[in-house]
Simulated assay, not measured.
Amino acid sequence: MLGARVALPSECVTALRAQRAQQVADRKSADDNWKGAGHGLVFTTRNGTPIEPCNLNRSFEALSIRAGVHKVRFHDLRHTCASLLHEQAADARMIMEVLGHSSIRVTMDIYTFVRLDSQRSAFNRVGEVLRNDGSEPGEDDGAADASVAI
């Protein structure tokens, strides 16, 4: 997928530009020891070689712990991306293409989930329709805190 164009939030673009600047500095420091020529990789070791998957996972776990994030696998970031796009009403086909799937069914069945707060919000709206008692949408009736474990 080298050379593919993807839309990204500005925060990601900023982080990627910072990564590119770090990579340029690493390349200058490595001088003749730089092994990254022709790879075209955004993330490499300090000498330009591809990052080993076990090292990536180890670094990601350490960063997650430092950030106070509960343990997740690096691959789970794909699920998070798909779910966040889904929650923002992104078109299923677009999510499928972002993830590189050949089937919408895979995207929707495996890579999306709906967060509890989104479920509560949707059911609060359903409650407003069922109530239809003239109360204003969004009036606090305590329903926002209602959830049931199944």
Rank of each mutant, 00 (worst) to 15 (best):
L84E: 12
L99G: 00
L130H: 04
R115H: 15
A89I: 05
S83R: 14
V106N: 02
I95C: 02
C81T: 06
C81S: 07
A92V: 13
T80L: 15
L116Q: 08
D133H: 01
S121W: 08
A122G: 09
V126N: 09
I104P: 12
D117G: 04
F113W: 15
R115V: 04
A89D: 13
M108F: 03
V98A: 00
I95D: 00
S118W: 06
R105H: 13
N124I: 14
D91Y: 07
H101Y: 00
E97M: 10
I110S: 04
H79V: 04
L84K: 10
L130N: 04
M94D: 13
L116M: 12
S121E: 14
T112H: 02
A90D: 01
V98I: 06
G127A: 13
V98S: 00
Q119S: 12
R125N: 10
E87F: 14
R115C: 06
S121G: 07
T112P: 04
R115I: 05
Q88S: 10
D91T: 04
S118T: 12
L130K: 07
A89M: 11
H79G: 08
E97K: 05
R125C: 13
D133T: 01
H79Q: 06
I110P: 00
A82Q: 02
F123M: 11
A122M: 15
L85V: 03
S103L: 04
R120K: 12
Q88G: 07
E128Q: 08
R93H: 08
H86E: 14
R115P: 15
